[in-house]
Computed example of a mutant assay.
Amino acid sequence: MKTKLLLLSLLTAVFATQIQAQNRTYVNAVNAEISDNLDLRAVADIFGDSRDLQDFERRLNDPELQISNLDLNNDNEVDYLRIIETVENRTHLIIVQSVIDEDIYQDVATIDVEKDRNNKIHVQIVGNEFMYGQNYIYEPVYYSTPVIYASFWSTNYRPYYSTWNWNYYPSYYYAWNPFPVFRYINNININLNINNNYNYVNNRRSNRAVVLHNSRRSNGYERQHPNASFSRRNSTVNNRHELDQRRVSRNETGYSNRRAIVQREYSQNRTSPSRQPAPQRAESSREYSQNRTSPSRQAAPQRAQSSREYSQNRTSPSRQAAPQRAESQNRGNTSRASGPQRTESQRGNSSSKNENRSS
């Protein structure tokens, strides 16, 4: 009996763990496209709005802005991005690192800031090759000179090195769950400053920045997932820019195919109804012509009969009126015949008057 209870308890425990594993949802960076979860244009945008690198790190991890959507350690929380800097003469190398575990960091992107001999400042945001492919670079052109430039070449400048690490974050920061990629992209497109330009290039300006980066590189995620590089995820393209172009061409092809199908259906719907109602139109025209001809033919006898009746009505009253006219004439004759009676009465009256006089 005890053994049965133990087996039942073990089975229930196994089923419970399986159900909990199914209910939990993770964003797996290996299976999904990692580069979709951090837009380097957004990184360039907030870099130009920052006062210094400390402010830049705060904006990069602001829960309200949500510039990043990276979850490299698959704990269903967006990773904290820390900033470290290396300086040599006129070159500043700024490294953006994802904190994925205790003392384990992964370089996500670098920002090369360099002043040339003419004191012109050049800025390039370079995507990590493991995440974005080869030579994925943006050169921002700001509509106004960023304030952060003034801090780089000030006297007694000290390179910035973030003090935050795993489970030790600033008070303003709290981890949030990663969003679906389409929602993250919409958020970035809304928050980008439209006055700035973000030009894609495939050549890195500063050779010195490459050397500085090799001395401070962190690749904890690469070591954990050696088969998750961009070249393995996307074997037909070199970097994220080519991937975006292919996606756009696919969307345009799909849109054009859908548009062609709609036009075909629309043309078929316009041609097929016009062919089908033709017999109906012929029948309706025939019925209309018959209705126009048959009533005229049927109405002909009616018109003849009505004309005959009308002629008879005109002739018969005249014939019936003849006796009435004769009667009226007879009445006239009787009135004329009454004339001699009046004369006789007059004569009688005159003879009576004469007899009275003689007497």
Rank of each mutant, 00 (worst) to 15 (best):
M1V: 07
T3L: 09
K4F: 09
K4R: 05
K4G: 05
L6G: 02
L6C: 06
L7K: 04
S9N: 14
L11I: 13
T12C: 13
Q18D: 07
N28P: 07
A29H: 08
S35E: 12
N37Y: 11
L38P: 04
A42V: 06
V43T: 10
I46Q: 03
D62A: 04
L72V: 03
N73V: 05
E77G: 05
V78D: 09
Y80A: 01
L93S: 09
I95F: 01
V99P: 02
I100K: 01
Y105S: 04
D112L: 07
V113D: 07
E114K: 00
D116E: 08
V123T: 12
Q124P: 03
E129A: 03
Q134W: 09
E139P: 12
V141I: 12
Y142Q: 10
T145N: 14
V147C: 00
A150F: 08
T155G: 06
N156A: 11
Y160C: 04
Y161Q: 15
S162F: 03
S162L: 03
Y168D: 14
P178T: 04
P180C: 01
V181Y: 07
I190K: 13
I194G: 05
Y198S: 01
A209K: 01
V211A: 07
H213A: 04
H213W: 12
N214E: 13
R216A: 08
E222D: 15
R223L: 10
H225K: 09
P226N: 03
P226A: 05
S231G: 01
T236H: 08
N239F: 09
H241T: 00
H241R: 09
E242F: 06
L243F: 06
R246F: 07
E252I: 09
Y255H: 11
S256Q: 13
I261W: 06
Q263N: 13
P273C: 07
R275V: 01
Q276W: 13
A278C: 03
E283L: 12
E283F: 13
R286N: 13
Q290V: 08
R292D: 08
R292Y: 15
Q298E: 13
A299I: 01
Q302P: 01
S306Y: 10
R308N: 04
Y310V: 04
Q329N: 11
N330E: 03
N333G: 03
T334C: 01
S335F: 12
T343P: 03
E344P: 03
S350V: 11
K353H: 06
N354C: 02
S358T: 14
